[in-house]
Amino acid sequence: MPDEVAAAADMIGGAQALLVTAGAGMGVDSGLPDFRGSEGFWRAYPPYARLGLRFEELADPEHFADDPELAWGFYGHRLELYRQTVPHTGFDILRRWARTRPTTVFTSNVDGHFQRAGFPADDVAEVHGSIHHLQCLRLCGYGVWPADGPDGSIDVPVDEDTMRATGPLPRCPGCGALARPAILMFGDTGWDESHAAPALARHADWLRERRGTGLAVVELGAGTAVPTVRRRSELASAASGALVRINVREPEIRHDRGVGIAGPAAATLTAIDDALGRPGTG
């Protein structure tokens, strides 16, 4: 899509500030599984296919009370997967663009990969929280603490044949109750958002300060099933019309307020970056 790539390069090259928004599709090029639809999820986790359990059913806080080994089998495996996975080259490109103008990130991903790629934690708004932080299931008041701390990382052994946790489960340091990831799950009324809230507030202030000042939005892998990220992208780019939407399956742009590119994140960002390096672009 050379025309779309050139148009995206013009928008990004001429921007005075960048908002990077990202959904689950951003991590696929790093090797993370694609959870789109039950079939994609079950290909990644065959034991759940045998049980007939969908992603939405497992990402439910009720399991921590009803069947904690099932709950921590799912989240313990994901925690270790995200620790071991290296962010793809597209993150490096975004980081380089961020060095030339004010940039902030808004993501529904809980993997912490923007921070691992070098983005300052204060500049990453995680609207669904982070799997790298834990909270008390009972909300005893202890607050949120890191799963990766100076005294060692929380380790949850998982039997990959059954996808159930084995051995001791993480506990709250304050009251000793079962711990859970500090992320927003489906039907979740017990999420402790205290860790995520400051960055989300800074993000809102950042957007208010830069509306009408040449802001461009680069959206990556954000689908319509959970439209939080797409809505943020569209609202933030409403004044400038500078929205670059990169999505393998759903690249459409409403009201001609930007450019949509049907492609994966890493390859598309590389193509735009190459275009930015050509004379007369940006």
Rank of each mutant, 00 (worst) to 15 (best):
G176Q: 08
F64Q: 07
I272A: 02
R164G: 07
T100P: 01
C172M: 08
A71C: 12
G152D: 12
L58T: 06
C136R: 10
P181F: 06
A8F: 02
S130G: 00
P279R: 12
L70R: 14
V127A: 07
V127T: 03
G112A: 08
A8N: 00
G90L: 08
R99L: 15
A179L: 05
L51A: 14
F119L: 04
I131D: 05
I154K: 04
Y45H: 14
W145S: 07
G23C: 09
E219N: 02
E209Q: 15
I246R: 03
P251I: 05
E193F: 03
I93V: 15
R78N: 12
G27N: 11
P279E: 12
G190M: 13
F91G: 07
D66N: 13
L70P: 11
A238T: 02
G167F: 09
I261G: 01
L18A: 03
G214M: 08
A216W: 04
P47H: 09
R171T: 10
R171W: 02
G280Q: 09
I154D: 08
P102D: 13
D205S: 11
G221N: 04
R116W: 01
G23W: 08
I183L: 14
A7H: 13
R208Y: 00
A8K: 00
P120I: 03
W191L: 05
W191V: 05
H113C: 01
L79R: 11
C175A: 03
S240N: 06
V217K: 04
A17C: 15
A44P: 13
W72K: 12
V226L: 14
G214Q: 11
E4T: 07
